[in-house]
């Protein structure tokens, strides 16, 4: 279990590194003229490439963040393992649902 999570964490990190790099670039580019719904939606709506990009981004983040949070909770809190696992499963589901909802909203 631990090893599987470790591998998932590292594999998602490798892919996320690339996606975050693009995301940061886009943030710096998009923020130049101020953010507006028209500007954001004009870029994303009906664009299969951005839909795939953000869909993959959400999926990877929903894997990567809860595993990281789980490790921190394990090491920095005295919470029981079962509580930590439940919290992190809940967090993963929250990110998946809210994330895909956000992607659906903008594409």
């Amino acid at each position: 279990m631990e090893r599987r999570l470790f591998v998932l964490q590292r594999l998602s990190a490798m892919l996320l590194a690339l996606l975050v790099f693009i995301h940061l670039g886009l943030i710096l580019f998009a923020v130049r003229d101020g953010l507006s719904a028209a500007e954001i939606l004009g870029r994303t709506q009906g664009n299969i490439l951005w839909a795939t990009f953000y869909g993959l981004f959400v999926l990877l983040v929903a894997i990567h963040a809860p595993i990281g949070v789980r490790k921190v909770l394990q090491e920095w809190t005295g919470l029981p393992a079962s509580t930590i696992n439940s919290v992190c499963w809940g967090f993963a589901l929250l990110l998946l649902v809210l994330g895909f909802r956000a992607v659906a909203a903008v594409v």
């Binding site: 954001i40 959400v58 963040a65 994330g99 956000a102 992607v103």
Partner: peptide, 15 residues
């Protein structure tokens, strides 16, 4: 990690 749900909620308002 704390920021992400709020980020998604904001974008979700485009619904």
């Amino acid at each position: 990690a704390i920021f992400l749900p709020f980020h998604f909620l904001l974008l979700g308002t485009a619904l």
